[in-house]
Amino acid sequence: MSKFLCRLSLFLCAALCASSALAHGEEAHCAAVTASVEDAGFSDVVTVTCRDGQALISGDVLPDHEMMTGIIGTNEQVPVPALNYASPVQLAPNLGSGPHTRDAALGVAVNGIPIYDYTAGGEMSQDDLASYQAHLDTVVTGQLDVCGGHAGRGDDYHYHAEPTCMIEQMQNAGPDAIIGWGFDGFPIYTKTNPDGSDIAQGALDVCNGQADDTFGYRYHTSEGAPYIIQCLMGDVPDMDRLPRVGPLVPAGGGRGPEAGRPPQGGVDALVFVQDEVTGESLMSYSYEGSDYYIKYAPSGTDNCYDFETRTVTNGGALYQAELCR
Rank of each mutant, 00 (worst) to 15 (best):
V267D: 06
L270F: 05
P247I: 10
T301P: 01
G254L: 00
G234F: 04
Q210E: 15
G224T: 14
S281W: 01
G265L: 06
C231D: 07
Y292I: 06
L270V: 00
A259S: 13
P237D: 05
V277W: 11
H220I: 07
D213I: 11
A297L: 12
I294T: 07
S222L: 05
G260E: 00
P263L: 09
E258H: 02
T278Q: 07
V267F: 06
T301K: 13
Y227I: 05
I229R: 02
E280G: 05
D213N: 12
M283S: 09
Y227A: 00
V271R: 15
Y287C: 00
Y219D: 10
Y293G: 07
Y305C: 04
S299T: 11
K295T: 11
A225I: 10
L232K: 04
S286G: 14
G265Y: 03
L232I: 14
Q210K: 14
T278W: 01
N303A: 12
P262M: 01
P298G: 03
M239Y: 05
Y217E: 06
D235T: 13
P262K: 09
Q264E: 15
D235Y: 12
A251G: 07
E288F: 02
A251R: 11
Q210T: 12
I228W: 00
D291K: 10
P250C: 02
A211N: 08
Y217D: 08
I294F: 00
G260D: 06
E223V: 13
D213R: 13
S299W: 10
L242H: 10
I228D: 07
I229L: 15
G234W: 08
T301C: 10
E288A: 12
G279F: 01
R244K: 15
M239P: 10
T278M: 04
R218G: 07
L282W: 10
S299D: 14
P257E: 03
H220N: 09
D235A: 13
D268N: 11
S286T: 15
M233T: 06
V271I: 10
D302S: 13
A269K: 12
R218L: 12
A269N: 15
L232A: 05
C231Y: 07
G256D: 03
R261T: 14
G253P: 02
C231V: 06
A251M: 11
T214Y: 08
G254A: 05
M239N: 04
P250W: 08
P247K: 12
I294K: 02
A259T: 12
G256Q: 05
D238S: 13
G265F: 09
R255K: 13
G253N: 09
F272C: 12
P262T: 05
Y285S: 02
R255V: 08
E223N: 09
C304G: 04
K295M: 13
G289L: 08
A211I: 00
E280M: 14
D240M: 09
Y296Q: 09
E258C: 03
R218E: 13
G246L: 14
Q264P: 04
V236M: 06
Y217L: 03
L270P: 01
P226E: 02
G265V: 00
P243N: 11
Q264N: 11
G279K: 08
Q230H: 15
A259N: 12
Q274I: 11
G279H: 03
Y287M: 04
P262C: 01
E280F: 07
Y219M: 01
S222Y: 09
R241Y: 09
A251F: 11
P247V: 13
